[in-house]
Design a protein around this nucleic acid. Structure first.
Lengths: 230, 230
DNA sequence: GCGATGACATGACAATTGTCAAGTTGTGGC
DNA sequence: GCCACAACTTGACAATTGTCATGTCATCGC
């Protein structure tokens, strides 16, 4: 059974928060709530989508296995974020696999329920399009990063996204494994290590999962610097 | 004024083809039809989205300009494909810019029209989600390619997608500039040249915009080969 | 036909990254 | 406390790619 605090988190998710109260109640009451252990599979690539997933706690990664066996991390989600919307409504197989990278609480909204609500109220469609667009946008941003930035610059941007400060210094916690960070940024763990050392001169100190940024603006300049400048 | 043949092409687009006849007619009658010259801008990143775009003829590229000035090609569209769906319905700025890479015929469907139809009939929302999902999927595939494949392997896959044959040999035409192909595959034109030469031993001959593949299956094996194998 | 232009190929070189191997450190089990 | 294991770092080396320079070729305007 779901705790009230979990329901409160679900209400704040991008997917649900803009919906009218009575729809949210209906979705919450029919949703399936489940806990996943670290490393547990949530669904597999090619599997048929039966639900939309909302993360209430913990971290989830979406990834693809290339035929060669290489793993490509597509996105990483946490509390309040949802995934699988576009797929669930179309009865197509998942293009990616999902796995819990830490212990997780996840709410599953059965897609038939969402579909039937959508036929009642087109506003639901708009809401789903909203989350889908967010994902689309983040994939586009990732593509740009991979194609137009060096490894160290991608790491710099990753660090900047962890902080909400505009200027000055700050300290942030790395939200998950360095191995996963490396995958998310499209590099090997060794390259991530090197990228971190390359950021030292720009005022970044890494200690365990703790990062210290001396000057946010300086780091931002570095991330947006033309790679030909030294 | 739109030719009947253009309307016929529009009807076959992924966006429209699954809609009921009367909706298609309404959308077609209110759409704006326009021709673009090679190199002409269709819209710019950060611009507000006012329409969904359907390509009737020619080629269009979506790209992002990094703050450094580097250009990252996000996708390339041609006849029957549409873009801008998720953005148009949400009154948010475009995350990418669009440019005609050859002379183009493009149909623009005003987003307010689409929105009002959507409130009448939720089926429209499903149709839009369908095209959006297609884009999402293709971005995911691109990410996997960039993260898990070498340059030459990406080129191999690109060639394979141009052919509809399953095995044996074949000849295909490169649909656009090698410069654009390089951008689309996340590399410099020089690297594309090298990738082509690397594909020679696998039975690929390039002559101008004409490619000859000796053995489709052999090329497919190459594309999916573990990069550690030689 | 001729020069200008842009697309493309190629070689040399530098920078970046993957790979392999070795060593360090922290964590959890017992 | 000690061991085993996984995460992480570092160095050496090879492979890949970007960069720069040069040269060829086709197209286009005149």
């Amino acid at each position: 059974m779901a705790h009230e605090t979990q329901k409160a988190i679900a209400r704040q998710s991008l997917l649900l928060k803009s919906l009218p109260e009575h729809h949210i109640d209906k979705l919450l009451s029919h949703a399936i709530w489940r806990r996943y252990d670290r490393g547990e599979t949530i669904f597999l690539q090619e599997e048929e989508a039966k639900a939309v997933h909302v993360v209430l706690a913990g971290w989830v990664k979406l990834f693809r296995m290339a035929p060669t066996g290489a793993e490509a991390v597509v996105s990483v989600f946490t509390r309040g974020e949802s995934f699988g919307e576009a797929v669930a409504l179309r009865n197509v197989p998942y293009p990616v696999s999902a796995e819990a990278v830490s212990a997780c609480e996840i709410m599953h909204i059965p897609s038939p329920l969402l579909l039937s609500l959508m036929r009642e109220d087109p506003e639901i469609g708009v809401s789903i399009l909203a989350s889908t667009f967010t994902h689309l946008h983040s994939l586009v941003a990732q593509l740009e990063q991979l194609k137009a930035q060096t490894g160290a610059q991608r790491v710099a941007e990753f660090l900047l996204n962890l902080s909400d400060k505009v200027s000055g210094g700050c300290e942030v916690e790395l939200p998950y494994d360095k191995m996963l960070i490396a995958g998310r940024l499209g590099m090997k763990p060794e390259s991530l290590s090197r990228a971190f050392s390359r950021l030292k001169p720009v005022g970044v100190k890494i200690n365990r999962n703790h990062a210290e940024i001396a000057d946010i603006q300086g780091l931002r300049d570095y991330a947006e610097r033309d790679s030909s400048e030294k």
